[in-house]
Design a protein around this nucleic acid. Structure first.
Lengths: 209, 209
DNA sequence: GAATTATTGTGAAACGATTCACTTAAATAA
DNA sequence: TTATTTAAGTGAATCGTTTCACAATAATTC
């Protein structure tokens, strides 16, 4: 399959907008509506749909229900997916409480932390010891993980996760991690993202001088 | 100026690696070292340097101190930059405590929240009422902000920020925001990023069948 | 029911980013 | 001091993504 990463990300955004529109009682919708809402163009929207074989009605746009069904199919939004978070510090805990994931069909089933003070087997979701990481992933057939540990232990943690059977991670450690080719890593380097905003803002100012 | 977004992001990563290498006592470094550490290629590294006029020594690589000085210059890492966070919920508070920003010369000077229970003028940084947002930005000439409020109030908050003089934001609300052309927004849509990882992982599996 | 209009759908062109293929020069070896 | 080696530097080619230009067709109007 062709890797059309940007398109896929937008499809997820279209899906969210579609769900919100449906809640507002809309029954049909146009490529312009998506464009307007997401800050892109209707051409981009239709091209994305075209790539994935999503179709509407010429002149009458897209039926909300129908498109949503097609989108769910393309995006494989079938059953819930279990996710674990490694690192129960500030970011790990914030993500645990983040509602967005649940809405997206992503269930956080456990956190893991070194620090015994953070651990709590009875909590929902439980916060377990790092020693249990390998076994938990293996037994529960977890495929998705979030890395929210300090940068010096991130690679170590990832290695365990890969060995245990995880297939993709979202990484908040501010460092590039090494993984095999068929493993999917999404780096969320908050430090660099914010630094780059500062940079681009400064550049914009210079421009106007 | 040409907008070479990807290159700029990598330059920040090179800088971080350079700083870590310096701490380890390294005095010179090669494009291959950067590539190896960041999971890219030495050609990419040299191309990035070339675009921004960063130069080394043929055969002997780059002097760590010298390159770092050049990089700081290119990336405008001069004075500290003040940042505010709007939304003192899970994510807002986690970001407040996140050390990475400080290391990157970014100082979080205040948080803002609707909820009077979250507010605390004496805290460091203070958590202020949303009513104070406009005045604070204006008086303190803040240019950078983080949006960590629920999606239904994100656009409202952004409008105030823009009006008050903010020039760029990092947005954690899972929605596309509208802003003028010369305003810089970096969307960190955690929900969609994690959903897309799930999607790509499923795709990888299919491939092997 | 024919003409008009609005919107989808898509191959081709343009653009931007990455990779290639080669040149240059400094350091080391002979 | 000359030859060899190693790594930087970069214009050109390639690749992936976005945008354009226009064809197709469903709905609406006349």
């Amino acid at each position: 399959m062709i890797l059309v990463k940007q398109s896929v990300l937008r499809l997820f955004q279209y899906r969210d907008f579609l769900i919100r529109s449906k809640k507002l009682g809309k029954e049909s919708i146009f490529s312009d509506d998506f464009a307007e809402n997401l800050g892109t163009t209707s051409i981009q929207v239709r091209k994305d749909f075209s790539i994935f074989g999503l179709s509407g009605n010429k002149r009458a746009g897209y039926k909300v229900d129908e498109l949503l069904k097609q989108l769910n199919d393309v995006l494989k939004k079938d059953e819930k997916q279990k996710v674990i978070i490694v690192g129960a510090g500030n970011i790990g805990k914030a993500l645990m409480k983040y509602d967005g994931f649940r809405e997206g069909g992503l269930e956080i089933v456990a956190l893991f932390d070194n620090d015994s003070k953070a651990q709590n087997e009875k909590a929902k979701p439980p916060v377990l010891a790092l020693e249990q990481l390998y076994g938990f992933i293996n037994e529960n057939k977890i495929e998705l993980g979030v890395i929210a540990v300090p940068y010096h232990s991130a690679q170590q943690v990832l290695d365990i996760m890969i060995l245990a059977g995880i297939k993709g991670v979202m990484n908040f450690a501010p460092i590039a991690l090494k993984a095999p080719k068929n493993f999917y890593i999404n780096d969320m380097n908050l430090k660099i993202e914010l630094e780059s905003i500062a940079y681009f803002v400064k550049s914009l100012k210079k421009k106007r001088t």
